[in-house]
Write a protein that binds this DNA or RNA. Structure first.
Lengths: 137, 137
DNA sequence: TCAAACTGCGGGTATATGCACGTATCTATG
DNA sequence: CATAGATACGTGCATATACCCGCAGTTTGA
């Protein structure tokens, strides 16, 4: 079976496509799906440090640091120093909260599209498999 | 169901993990899974233009152009001008062919691991779903 | 034949992502 | 209390990825 096309490449390809779908849906807000996800995490867990946020998002800390810089420049979140002066505590600005709120229906729409297209069963299969992939290392 | 976590983010996360697995396996060769995939395509279809290769890989042409530059710098492929002087025709060098050959067993190993871990059925489900995602736009 | 339309690329711009390294800060121990 | 070790970040480096624009070479239609 290993002669089949690379599972990794197939996954990457699908990820690009799916990302572009979500990105297109959120485009009216001027943010992409990664940024939307990050903002929602900050809304939910903020004020939160970069390290903790990176853990939640399962991304490298430095990646999160750079990604937040973009959102900070956009005025969607602020970075404050905590009691521990090393910590960069992230919080949403009013604009950031607004974007998350405005984005919800847009995100719901794409998410719903995907669910309709794939159906509940295959969707469950997908998440089950993805989960396996992530927990195997 | 839309309250579940974002399908796109889940896919991206799994893609990062899986990519790093493949990358680790190919690390002895000094290339990553994307580069390995590209080299194999060039071996199979070369000499091939950037535009055609981009189509095969389902990547943006400029992305492929940049990615090939890295491999060219590594001495794994060469860029020649075709009859149509605009075309950049890609071919593997001897070193490139060697890398593809040496990489085959390494790639087989990871690919096989994944297949063992997921099992044939779930693997078929995965590809079926990924295929759907890609063809829906 | 000659200009218009088309095509193939390169480069600029921007984000995403991870690793390695350096700096500032905190903490625990002698 | 001073210092070694741990922790939180930032930055440099490298690749991945896409979009847009402009240049140059090609093809085509009048």
């Amino acid at each position: 079976m290993s002669n089949a096309s690379c599972h990794c490449i197939a996954l990457r390809k699908a990820t690009r496509k799916l990302s572009s779908l979500y990105d297109a849906a959120l485009a009216p807000l001027g943010i992409n799906v990664g940024q939307f996800s990050l903002l929602r995490r900050v809304r939910r867990f903020g004020p939160v440090s970069l390290t903790d946020l990176a853990e939640y998002l399962d991304l490298d800390r430095s990646t999160v640091g750079r990604n937040t810089k973009v959102l900070e420049r956009m005025g969607l979140l602020t970075v404050a120093t905590g009691r521990d002066q090393r910590e960069a505590l992230l919080s949403l600005t009013d604009a950031g909260r607004q974007v998350v709120e405005d984005g919800a229906p847009l995100w719901d729409a794409v998410q719903g599209n995907i669910e309709t297209r794939l159906g509940a069963e295959r969707l469950a299969q997908l998440h089950d498999i993805l989960n396996d992939i992530q927990t195997d290392c």
